Structures are given as structure tokens and as C-alpha cells.
Computed example of a mutant assay.
Amino acid sequence: MSRTVTYYVFLNSPWCFMGAGRLAEIARTAGATVDVRPINLGRVFQETGGKPLAQRPQARQDYRLYELARWRRWYGLDMVEHPDVFPCDEGLAATCVLAVKAAGGDALALATGFGAALWLDNRDIGRRPIIEGVLKAQGLDAAAVLAEAEGQADRWATELQANTDAARAAGCFGVPWYVVDGEPFWGQDRLDFVAEALTRPTA
């Protein structure tokens, strides 16, 4: 029986983007499914004591840059250190991910595409033309996806809220947050442990 990695994602996160390719590879190797669940990270921070980047002590902000540099070298990604617009308003982009997922499409690839637009191409994924471009680059009918995303705004807002509720119930306090058989893993630097969890026998 196929296993599932529940993936709580915030599209603005460089850590989500950096780990996404490895997550997809792990899932393919294990024959597992990735259940992509965009969340409201601001609410998670409010409820768990986390702080947006700009509100963190300078020492933490400085160390983050060292970590970003190390991990982008590790993954071989030519990432932008300081995107022109960060954080972007990811509301519509996240809604598109939900709509594509509901239609049986590759939500992981789309979420990764939005991350690439921000962190590789320095594009504002809060802008509709950029969103359209990402959708088209993924081989999707951009007009149809946007019509679904914008035409059922209440549905997707409810789903985003439910995802955030589920993330909190799973102990989430940051992203990326992965869950395998009820066991949580925080950060793209825990993906080897995610891979190991998928090899364990099921109860």
C-alpha cells in the first residue's frame, strides 16, 4: 500500500523550495504520495511563538544567511539572496495550488514552481501575471486554474484554514513540516529521516 508524506508548505519559504526536489525524489523512490497542504504560516507563528523574519533578532537574521548559502550550494541552486519582494502575498498562488490538487494535478510541482519563480527568478508571486506564467510553465491551463481559484474563494479559504488547523494538530511550528505515519519532521534538513520513515514496515 502506498505511503503518504503530508507536506505543510508556505510558498514564500526558501526552505520549502530547496527541499521540494529532494522530497519529490524520496517519494518516487519509495512509491509514496505527497499530500501538499498550503498553510497560513502567520497564524502558526502567532500560536507557537514564532516571529516573521523582520521581527527576529539580528543575530538570527544573520545566521539565516549562512544557512541559506550552505544549503543552496548543497542543492546546487543559484538562488537570490534577497528577493525584491519578500514575503510576497501568496494568497492567490496558494489557492491555485489547492485548485490544482483538487483536480488531481501535480500540486507539488506547482508549489515548487512558485518557489522557483521567487527564489531563482526574483519574481513576485503575488502578481497575477507572474502566477499565470508559472501555471503555463507547468503545462496548465492558466485561465482555467485561475477561474477555479478565484471563482471558489470561500472553498479554498476554508481548506487553507483546515490545513492550518491540521498542521497545528500535528505540532507544526515552522515550515517545511512533513508528517509520515503520525511522526513529524521539521525542515528540509530532516528529509533523510523522512526517507528512512518511509522504509519502515507499517503497523
Rank of each mutant, 00 (worst) to 15 (best):
R28Q: 11
P14K: 09
G171R: 09
R28L: 10
G187R: 02
I125P: 13
K101A: 01
D165H: 08
L191M: 14
A166N: 01
V5P: 15
V9E: 06
A169S: 06
P14T: 07
A144G: 01
D89A: 10
I125E: 07
G76V: 01
L98D: 02
R37H: 09
T29R: 15
A137H: 14
D89I: 03
Q46E: 14
L160H: 11
A20M: 05
W156C: 00
P87E: 06
A137Y: 11
D192W: 09
P87R: 11
E90H: 12
G187L: 02
T112F: 06
I125W: 14
A54H: 15
L53G: 11
A143M: 00
F185Y: 08
R43N: 10
L92V: 03
E25C: 01
L140R: 05
N163Q: 04
E25Q: 15
A107M: 07
V97E: 00
C16V: 10
N122M: 06
T158V: 07
K136A: 08
F86Y: 13
L41P: 11
T199L: 08
E90R: 03
G31R: 15
A99N: 00
V194K: 07
R123L: 12
M1I: 14
R190S: 09
Y63D: 08
A30L: 02
E25N: 08
V44H: 03
P176G: 04
V44L: 12
V134H: 12
R127W: 06
G115W: 06
V180D: 08
T158M: 01
D35P: 10
A137G: 15
N40S: 12
V180K: 10
D62I: 11
A24R: 15
